[in-house]
Amino acid sequence: MKKRIPYVIFLVSLLSLTVLCGCDKSTKSAQEKQEKTENQEQVTKEETDRKKNNTINLYYLNAQEDGFKKVSCKLQHSDDPKEMANEVLYKLSDTENNNTDKYKASIFDGVVINDVNVSRGKATIDFGAGYIQLSHTQEVLLRTSVVKSLLQIQGIDGVLFSVNGSSLLDNDKMPVGLMEASTILTDDGQADIYSAKKKVKMYYTNETGDKLIPYLTELTVTDNVPLETQVLLALKNPPASKKNLKSPLPSDFYVNQTQILNNICYVDLSSEVEKAAVNVKEKVTVYAMVNSLADLDTAYQVQFTIDGKKISKLNEFENFDALLTSDFSLCK
């Protein structure tokens, strides 16, 4: 019996150590859980206090217009979510007083708000026709800014958008639907907000440079480069797998700027466009650009300038300064 006492003592000690370790882990886990709960309660309390004080963060555009600048604002209206929503939208579009060197209005010039309605926790914002003139990047910035700002109002849990009474459609012609907190990309609304897939029809030329060949592909719209600019730049690089497609543009072709206004795509090109692509007729070069842009459905006509100036003749192509529409007679 005496020989077994140390062994029994060892077992008792080991069991005690195990129990102590288990208790320590349980205590640590309980503390961590309590701290997490306290942090969540603190955030919830701060959010509740902020709503009670009618103080929210307005999400303006930053100075570079590639993200957001949060600006604290105490709303004048306190009881009516619709009036509060109207106040927020007015401030987000108030370019006169909020166009500073630090932030800018997120509801762009030319975008009119026809109506605002709040019912059962949903705010419906109806825009005028000017909304459809926005680039994809501008659309995403505007919607993100509006949604993140309005969701802070007590009584608004989601936002719907429409244009002249019709549901807002995405690039695939499907309704955008209700935007809630879960649909906002990041806390600052910046990560990947420009990223989107868009099916486009590009018009390359054949090997002899006298015909256009339509080619359906998909572009990833990224950063703050307008889709129209990306389409023109993509014309420089036909897919390597398609040996029958040739670029209709000179290799050093560059786009200074593209802008959509009143269903017209204004395109300012660099002077390199005057260097004809090898064995490509100027008419083919011009309508490769026009057809590709018009197929986006953001504009029906194209107005070209070169380094900011209207040029009546592009080499052998007459009326280069006119409003141009699609010409499918050149398609193979």
Rank of each mutant, 00 (worst) to 15 (best):
N206F: 03
Q133R: 14
S16V: 02
V280G: 00
N57Q: 08
K332D: 03
L17D: 06
L150I: 02
K70R: 10
E207H: 02
D80I: 08
R50L: 09
M179V: 15
E96Y: 14
S195A: 03
L58M: 05
K2E: 11
V176F: 05
T298D: 13
A191D: 06
A191V: 07
F317N: 11
L169D: 00
L141N: 09
T258I: 05
E139R: 15
V231K: 04
I156L: 09
P214I: 07
D49W: 09
G110A: 05
T144G: 14
N62M: 02
E38T: 09
D321W: 08
A85Y: 11
K281A: 09
F108A: 07
Q154Y: 12
T298A: 14
S247V: 00
L75G: 14
K309A: 08
T220E: 15
V255W: 03
A85P: 15
L314E: 02
A276V: 09
V273L: 04
N244P: 00
L249T: 02
I184C: 09
K197A: 10
L232A: 01
D24P: 00
G177K: 08
L269R: 00
T27K: 10
I156M: 06
D66L: 01
S13K: 11
K148M: 15
K310M: 10
E41K: 10
